[in-house]
Amino acid sequence: MENRTSAKIISTTIKNNSLEITNTTKTKQNDRTAISRSSKTKSLELLPLEIDNFQDNSDRICHNWLKAHKTESLCPKNVQGYTKIVILLQNIVELIARIKTTIQCAQLQKQMVSETVGNIVSNCLDIEPEHVTPTANLANDLGMDSLSWQELLITLEERFAIQISDEIAGTLVTVQELIERVVLIIQAKNKQSLQLQL
């Protein structure tokens, strides 16, 4: 007879303003481990609404289950089934709370980085901060030349303790692209630091 055990792991990551939720099921059969994955990506702007809707509906789920089983006796099987539903909903609500915290931290970090990058661009080019808009072209709209670009990169690297390669720098055209690249580098650095600590 085969000895088979399984465990479900749910993990979340943020990529390009989207939250990727990965549900990993590991099935152990003798000494073999098979892994199946399914991922679903949602826009960060839509998630808070969906999360709040689920929290509002969790009580309704329990109420509907009880209503559907009201004619049945509360036998051990029904009690066990209802208990499983309640525990599952509690686990989902806890996961939702962690997702919301992750979203809020990511949004706050992006906002802080955005403001800092805007100020640095403004100072390096000696222009008013209001001219540094997300869609502004660094060269055509803001007048950035090779000298000011090098100054900007050095200042960004020192301010955020990061490294921006020449290859990546050459692909950045607008202020928004610059901000998003800095955010991605910071997130990758933080993730690597966290993994080293673990």
Rank of each mutant, 00 (worst) to 15 (best):
I154H: 10
I103T: 03
I99D: 05
V182T: 08
I14T: 01
V173C: 09
V173N: 09
S36T: 15
G81E: 14
C124R: 00
V182A: 00
Q104R: 15
I154Q: 09
I154V: 13
N190I: 06
T174A: 07
E180K: 05
S193P: 04
R181Y: 04
R4E: 07
L172T: 07
E177Q: 15
K42Q: 08
K8M: 12
R37M: 09
Y82I: 15
L46I: 13
V132I: 14
T135R: 11
A161F: 00
Q176P: 09
T12M: 10
T116I: 07
T71G: 05
A34F: 11
Q55Y: 13
N91C: 09
V93N: 15
E115K: 11
E157W: 05
K42M: 09
R181G: 00
S36W: 07
L49Q: 15
E130N: 07
I35K: 12
L194S: 14
A34Q: 13
Q80S: 12
V113D: 02
V117T: 04
E72R: 05
E2R: 05
V121L: 03
Q192S: 11
I186K: 01
K15M: 01
M1E: 02
I168M: 10
L88F: 09
R32A: 14
Q29P: 00
E50C: 09
G170R: 04
Q195V: 11
V113M: 03
Q192I: 01
I185F: 02
L47N: 03
E130S: 10
I35T: 15
K77C: 06
N17A: 09
I103S: 08
N17L: 08
V121E: 00
Q109K: 09
L184M: 15
I99N: 00
V175L: 09
K28D: 05
V86F: 08
N137P: 05
W149N: 01
L178Q: 02
T116L: 07
I96C: 06
A169L: 01
E158Q: 12
T174C: 07
K77T: 08
N119K: 12
M1R: 00
N137E: 15
Y82G: 13
T24H: 08
